[in-house]
Nucleic acid binder design. Structure first.
Lengths: 236, 236
DNA sequence: CGACGCTTTGACACAACTCAACAACCGTGG
DNA sequence: CCACGGTTGTTGAGTTGTGTCAAAGCGTCG
C-alpha cells in the first residue's frame, strides 16, 4: 500500500512527527485493505484472541450489549481509527464492533506491532496519543449522556462527528454524509428511536440542523454549538 | 520509597511480569508521596502544562464541568491508579481532578517516564494495559448511564467499586469504606442527589445493600449482581 | 449556641419512554 | 408490472421515571 493512502500513518504523523522508517513500519504492520460487508460483526463482545484493525473506509460502530439486550454504542470509528486495540491488550474484548455500510479494514499484525514498538518507542507515544484522543471523546460522550438534555446531546453529537470527519476530508463546514438510521443514533445517545425522531424534528424546526436522506446539513452551526455547549476538538 | 509499598509498580507487575530494573525505574520516576488536603483541585480542566500523578492513598474524583455548571464525574481513582496521564499526552487536560479526602499522591516526572519507555519498551505495554483497563471501566460506565435504570446503575456502581478496591486490599467481599456524599454519587451516576437518596432507600429495603456512615455493606451480593447485570472485572 | 453540610421526605412538574398506528421507501419475487 | 414484506420514519396518547422545589431532621464543628 502506498504510504500516502494510509490513514493511520497520516493521522499519527500529524500528532508526532515521524521518520520515514517509522511511517513505513506502520504501513507494513497493516494488511492490504479487506472488504467487509454491511452488517458483519468483526469483533465480538467477551471473546478472546482478538484482532485489531484500522478502518480504511465505510461506517461501523463499537458497542456493548447489556444483559437485557439493550445496546449502547460507544463510538462510530471513522477512517484511520484503530479498532479493537483494547481487546488485544486486555486479551478479551469488552465490546463488539459491527460494520454498518460496506467497508474496508486493514488487519493489524500484533506481533509486528509489538516488535515495531520495541524498535521505535516514539511510535508507542504516537499510538498513545491516538488512544488518548479517542478516550477524551468517550469521556465527553459520557458527560453528554450523564448531564446534557436530549436536545443538547443530539446537537453535540452531530457537531463532534462533523469535526472528526473533517479531519479526514469527509465533511465540509455545513454538510456530511451520514448513513445512520434513527435507531442507531438512539443507541449512541442513550435515547429511544422515537424520541430521537422528535428531537431531530425540533432541531429542524429551530432551523439549526437537518438530518434527512442520510445527509446532515447545518443551517446554523454557531447556534447549534451554543445550544450544545460545544467546544471544538483539540487539534494535534 | 521501598518497592513493596509502591502501588503502581505492584499493579503493573501483575499485568506484565517486570524485571527488577523495570520495577526500580517505575519507582524512580515517582516523587515521594506528597500530602494533598481535602478539596484541593490538583488538575484543572482546559489547562495546559499538565502533570501526571499516581494516587497513593485517599479518595478523589476525575470530572468534567459542563457549560451550565453541571458536573459529571468520570471515575474515582483508587490507590495505584494513574491520574492526568491523558492530559499530559494531549497537552491540555479535558477534565479536572479533585481530592475528596486528605490524600497522598506521587508526582510523575514525564521526562523520566519518556526515557524509561525508550529503555524498557515493555513498560509501555504495561502502562497501555493499565490505561486500557481504565478505559474499559469508562466504557462500562458509559453503557450504564446510557442504558441501565437508576437502580441497576447504582447497584452496578457499588459492585464495580468493591472489586476495584479489593484488588488493593481496601474492601472485603461484603463491606468497604466509602467517604462519598450522595451529591457526589449523583454526579457519577448522572442522577440528582435526591433521586440517589430514593434509590439507596430502595436498595436498603430490598435488603441488597446499605450505604450509611460512609460505609457500604452488601447484604446480598449475588442478588445485587443479578439486579445490576454485573460481570466481575477481568483480572490480569 | 448557631451555622453549615448532608440526608430524608413529600408534592408536583416535566422529560423521555412505551404502545399503537400509519406512511414512505426500499428490494424481491410473482 | 405490480404486490408484498421488511425496514425506517412519523405522529399521537398515555404512562412512568426522574428532576425540581420546599421543608424538616440530624450531626458536626467552630
Amino acid at each position: 500500500m502506498p504510504l500516502g493512502s494510509n490513514f493511520l500513518a497520516k493521522k499519527l504523523n500529524t500528532f508526532v512527527k515521524l521518520s520515514q522508517e517509522e511511517l513505513e513500519g506502520l504501513v507494513q504492520m497493516q494488511s492490504a485493505p479487506v472488504p467487509v460487508e454491511q452488517g458483519v460483526e468483526l469483533l465480538h463482545q467477551g471473546e478472546n484472541g482478538q484482532i485489531a484493525y484500522v478502518l480504511q473506509s465505510g461506517w461501523g460502530c463499537s458497542f456493548k450489549i447489556l444483559r437485557d439486550g439493550a445496546r449502547q454504542i460507544i463510538t462510530f470509528p471513522i477512517p484511520g481509527d484503530l479498532i479493537g486495540l483494547r481487546g488485544v491488550l486486555l486479551k478479551t474484548s469488552d465490546h463488539a464492533f459491527s460494520v454498518i455500510t460496506d467497508a474496508q479494514v486493514c488487519r493489524i499484525s500484533v506481533a509486528r506491532l509489538t516488535s515495531l514498538l520495541e524498535e521505535f518507542p516514539r511510535l508507542g507515544t504516537a499510538i498513545m496519543w491516538a488512544t488518548s484522543r479517542d478516550e477524551a471523546i468517550t469521556v465527553e460522550h459520557l458527560a453528554s449522556i450523564g448531564r446534557r438534555t436530549s436536545l443538547e446531546r443530539t446537537a453535540h453529537f452531530f457537531l463532534e462527528l462533523r469535526d472528526r470527519l473533517q479531519l479526514v476530508g469527509l465533511a465540509t463546514d455545513t454538510e456530511y454524509d451520514c448513513p445512520l438510521s434513527q435507531y442507531v443514533i438512539a443507541d449512541v445517545l442513550g435515547l429511544s428511536a422515537i424520541h430521537v425522531n422528535r428531537v431531530l424534528r425540533q432541531l429542524r424546526e429551530l432551523e439549526l440542523l437537518t438530518f434527512q436522506d442520510h445527509t446532515v446539513t447545518f443551517h446554523d452551526a454557531a447556534g447549534l454549538a451554543e445550544l450544545a455547549g460545544y467546544d471544538a476538538i483539540e487539534g494535534p
